[in-house]
Nucleic acid binder design. Structure first.
Ligand SMILES: NC(=O)c1ccc[n+]([C@@H]2O[C@H](COP(=O)([O-])OP(=O)(O)OC[C@H]3O[C@@H](n4cnc5c(N)ncnc54)[C@H](O)[C@@H]3O)[C@@H](O)[C@H]2O)c1
Ligand SMILES: NC(=O)c1ccc[n+]([C@@H]2O[C@H](COP(=O)([O-])OP(=O)(O)OC[C@H]3O[C@@H](n4cnc5c(N)ncnc54)[C@H](O)[C@@H]3O)[C@@H](O)[C@H]2O)c1
Lengths: 235, 235
DNA sequence: GTCCCTTTGTGAACCGGTGCACAAAGTGAT
DNA sequence: ATCACTTTGTGCACCGGTTCACAAAGGGAC
């Protein structure tokens, strides 16, 4: 069976491109709401905060959807990007760990809009199990496998303490899940074929602190450099 | 003034390296707690989930802190990385927007440990202002400039609705802040010299959905490809 | 002091991604 | 039809980052 595809679509969109498509989609939705029918790569690039050549190259990976001299049809491009990202289907997600963060996520309406639906909340604490949050019952972690199956969950959000995260991940993966969004500050080890994305607040702050320090160092003359390798750090 | 630095430290650590240092630091802290005195690049790399050559190159940017045939001294390396990241000083952060997410962040103890301290909470809603959360009074956004100055805030976490984020960012920057962690799903435009990092849950989920779709597509035979460009999308 | 073993630090090839710059393609006016 | 103008799609040079692979350095045994 020979694979004949429309355009430049042999196999695989660059990872960097995938990571930007949601950005373009968001900008396009804004434009759609404002009633714009078409948009040039230049304008869309500005709205998404990227270089216009990059935007065009990104879009060229999906196919040749623009019209030279005109630009891109907003609605059509929304449809194409949505389809590429898999947002034309409905994704059921489960949140495991309904503490501070898990609750905030459950109550958040922002992603429900775009194809994602919080379908289950799970926790190990009997004091939390049974709570009703955002219209959902918190279920016990023992029910994990059954809940995943019953609700058709395909993406799991991990919001447990770090100490429990690996163990929960193992179980979730054993139950057939291959996409996990991890908020716990640990490096999860998972088998080939399982996608993990992590959100790590503490790392983000540390990166900011690094640059902030550089900025203020520069301000104060850049000296104090001599001091930076103190003698006698015994141990 | 000639800049003589210990080793390979002319100027600037690669951005990719900076982003990994917090990971190494976390792994090292775990090892320190378990009483390990030294660690090889191989072991540390495994703990941090990276390739060992990369780890060695990363560390080499800070200086030559290892001992051939032995490895790295855990405590010394913790000290060096902490210093490089600026974690030997104390960073006051302000959270603007004390809703679902802002509250979760305020109540979170995880980053307080490592040099960061939530020093102020700000909101525009009179119903929220005055609330006491995690030992802090929520202050009115009108006090922004005064609060930043008074508390020595140098990093701001934005947790307002998307619609307010740009406006709040502008104000925060005008007040002298140059490091912002943004949770609102918008592309902020900021002047040169201001560092923005964003955490965007919805984008992370969309990236997972993309890969998940690919996986299940492959499972179901990779066909249905012919269907994927429907005719007649009028408009 | 010599030899063997371990592990670092880095040169060099490689790779994915970026951005410039331009030919090709389309629109609209005349 | 032709021409002037706009904007896409992409070839190409470049760049930061990754990985391999190895020489150099240090430790420990004898
Ligand atoms: N809250 C934040 O702002 C924030 C920010 C960054 C990172 N995090 C991380 O997110 C995670 C959650 O943070 P939090 O503040 O919500 O913590 P939390 O302690 O408030 O909530 C954790 C929840 O997980 C549940 N849990 C524990 N073990 C479990 C298990 N084995 N199975 C199922 N549920 C289990 C607990 O019962 C609790 O309800 C932590 O790893 C934390 O480091 C939180
Ligand atoms: N809650 C989540 O899990 C989650 C997840 C991803 C992204 N986000 C994003 O984080 C942001 C906050 O989400 P949330 O769920 O906490 O929303 P929220 O509506 O619960 O809270 C927003 C808070 O910001 C305050 N606010 C509004 N305008 C303000 C202004 N000009 N100055 C100061 N404060 C102002 C509001 O009074 C409110 O208290 C949103 O942009 C949301 O899209 C939230």
């Amino acid at each position: 069976m020979i694979r004949r595809l429309s355009q430049a679509r042999e196999r695989g969109i660059p990872e960097a491109t995938v990571a930007r498509l949601p950005l373009y989609l968001r900008a396009l939705n804004g434009m759609s709401e404002r009633g714009l029918a078409t948009v040039s790569s230049e304008d869309l690039a500005v709205a998404a905060g990227v270089n216009s050549a990059k935007l065009r190259k990104d879009l060229s990976h999906l196919g040749s959807y623009g019209t030279r001299g005109v630009g891109y049809d907003v609605e059509y491009l929304i449809y194409q990007i949505s389809r590429e990202l898999g947002l034309t289907q409905d994704w059921a997600i489960a949140i495991v760990g309904v503490g501070n963060l898990g609750r905030a996520l459950a109550n958040y309406g922002g992603f429900v809009s775009r194809g994602f639906r919080v379908a289950a909340l799970l926790d190990a604490d009997p004091a939390v199990v049974g709570d009703r949050i955002a219209g959902l019952n918190v279920e016990h972690i023992d029910e994990l496998e059954a809940v995943i199956r019953r609700r058709g969950v395909s993406i799991v959000v991990l919001a447990t303490p770090a100490a429990a995260a690996q163990q929960v991940a193992d179980r979730v993966i054993a139950a057939g899940i291959t996409s996990i969004l991890n908020f716990a500050p640990v490096v999860l080890s998972v088998p080939e074929g399982v996608d993990i994305r992590k959100v790590d607040l503490s790392i983000e702050l540390q990166i900011l602190a690094f640059h902030e320090q550089r900025k203020t160092d520069r301000m104060t003359g850049g000296a104090a450099m001599a001091e930076e390798w103190p003698e006698a750090v015994d141990l």
